[in-house]
Write a protein that binds this DNA or RNA. Structure first.
Lengths: 332, 332
DNA sequence: TTTTCCACAGCAAACGTTTGCACAAACCTT
DNA sequence: AAGGTTTGTGCAAACGTTTGCTGTGGAAAA
């Protein structure tokens, strides 16, 4: 037999499919005796419900979609791991859609979510996304959406981020505490809210600490390679910086590369502090002091919020900002 | 209206649902006139087919599952990126299931694949998996399966790997060419076929080159931290090694950490060569010479094979071994 | 004019479940 | 012993599509 159905079991047991269905779902309306008869036969035949039929009938898919700019090395893997685990533990399944940072793909992915009748969507925005209008098809259908990490300001859906201003405050404060007054800053894609916020925080904290902000000591870069080049340029400026602040792992890697290329010693000749989930700082010796944000926690929290909204335990949009902490490892 | 169905359109246009269906699918049996009438109204109403119903009717899900041990930093992201793109480009969607390296989860995941009626499965095995018997439920149903990266020897399904013996040959040969005769080796989880093969290759190549194999110069480690400790131990052995071979990025990171901790200079005092997809070697200065295997290519090839099997273009199990090449970057 | 054929549209069944309702038998009530 | 309630089962519709078959009107062929 090709794949036993509920109807097959019903026929074999001289029962009605509905009774079999109830028996398998432990519905109280069915006698213990028939229940066991049904379940035993189901077991024996290796029966597994046809989820496609269940989905149609119940009008849901058991799917949660993760819309993400692209798989990259640093922030994502731990976020994914957390999300998958949380989703799995609650009986849903995770489907992943990449936007490759393009708006057009993100729009398509929204449509796919709608077609597949996903029950919730987790979103880390493409850098091309300037607003959230393309999520209307989902929001109109009351599909729960939670934005995380790469978000835009809005108030209609839950979001999970880290406190970007606070994170830079911790970093710059730590550098200042150690006596660093000329600080080089490496920042990412200036289109992203996350970059703008961290940059804003950086300047703000410098001002609070009465450290002059020097245009020539900061730069924006898209990846490690660019970051490395920009870091070299910054290090050539006079008066020379004594420390680097990098807003992401990619840029930290770039900065360290540049420092090593100049054969300068960390932290004796130049200090460095980054923002990281703690993985990449381990690559080096000394390990890199950083402000730690947990990608795992971001993912887990985003998934928990989404599940809360799906279960209607959460009614109003919640905006969670996760705490971070300084991890001193000797590079400052 | 809540979400227009084909029946809604039929009613509004005084047509039969079947005609509407055919019109939307550009079936030739429908007149150009009604076809446009239908398509225009569909457009106007924002009609999107209910994929759940389509799936049930067509008895497929449009889903491809990716069974993976866990999301980790190094090998996986590029593999995922490739797989997602290939799958997406062919109109399927990707669902991801982690096993956390446990057999029990892998078994559950197989069941989930069956229930969701996925049309193909890509597998990188959990380290607990000692055989493939738990994939029987899928193979019995003729669900195409392709194994990649972490595989076990078998002949019933396609597989994609890299040539582990050849890869170590390239590495060790390169070290020997540069005059290194005392080579430290760092290897991963000895349960994995991949580890055993690379270790076998390592010994074999040493023998071919008439370099004595020293037990005290090799070690096994599960992660960077352990790798670093093992590397330190190896470096303390006399006569001292002059070069490291590391079989994975994690271990490369560990070895470099140990070398830096000893304040030894690469490559003047000690050389290092690794196996990598080329990302992590960029972290350092000098960049690390490595044998490059493309995670992206592995993923893309695995996905292509799977799609080939699904489309029945590939009938017999194909075992693809991808080529690798030496990338010289100055650490040897 | 009659026959043949084709283009188009409708009918109805099917995919495998779930679930509201009906109904029979058995069990309590007074 | 008549009525009411519980317990277990069956019937049939529904979820939204797709598709084989049937049927009609009209054009082309004979």
């Amino acid at each position: 037999m090709n794949r036993p159905t509920i109807t097959d079991i019903a026929r074999l047991l001289q029962l009605n499919p509905s009774t079999v269905s109830r028996a398998l779902n432990n519905h109280p309306d069915v006698s213990p005796e028939t229940r066991t008869r049904v379940q035993e036969l189901a077991q024996e035949l290796g029966y597994a419900p046809n989820q496609l039929a269940v989905n149609l009938r119940k009008r849901h898919s058991g799917l949660i979609a993760l819309l993400v700019s692209e798989m990259n090395m640093f922030f994502n893997p731990s976020v994914f791991r957390a999300i998958e685990q949380e989703v799995y533990a609650n009986g849903y399944h995770l489907i992943i859609l990449q936007s490759n940072n393009t708006l057009i793909r993100e729009k398509q992915n929204v449509q796919i979510c709608r077609q597949l009748a996903v029950e919730g969507v987790l979103v880390s925005l493409a850098s091309e996304a300037q607003d959230l209008s393309h999520f209307a098809p989902l929001l109109d259908q009351k599909v729960p959406v939670v934005f995380f990490d790469r978000i835009l300001p809005q108030n209609h859906s839950c979001s999970v981020t880290i406190d970007d201003v606070e994170i830079t405050r911790l970093a710059v404060q730590h550098l200042a505490d150690k006596g660093h007054l000329r600080i080089g800053g490496l920042f990412g894609d200036p289109n992203l809210t996350i970059t703008r916020e961290r940059f804003r925080g950086f300047k703000q904290v410098l001002q609070e600490l009465d450290i002059p902000f020097e245009e020539k000591h900061i730069a924006f870069a898209q990846d490690s390679e660019q970051g490395s080049q920009q870091a070299l340029k910054i290090m050539e400026q006079q008066p020379a910086i004594t420390a680097f602040f990098t807003m992401s792992d990619e840029l930290m890697v770039g900065a360290v590369q540049a420092i090593e290329q100049k054969r300068m010693r960390i932290p004796e000749e130049i200090a460095i502090i980054g923002i990281s989930d703690g993985f990449a700082p381990e690559f080096y010796n000394p390990k890199i002091t950083h402000i730690r944000h947990s990608g795992y926690e971001v993912g887990a929290e985003a998934a928990r919020l989404l599940l809360g909204v799906i279960r209607e335990e959460i009614k109003d949009p919640l905006h969670v900002q996760l705490a971070c902490r300084l991890v001193e490892l000797g590079s400052v």
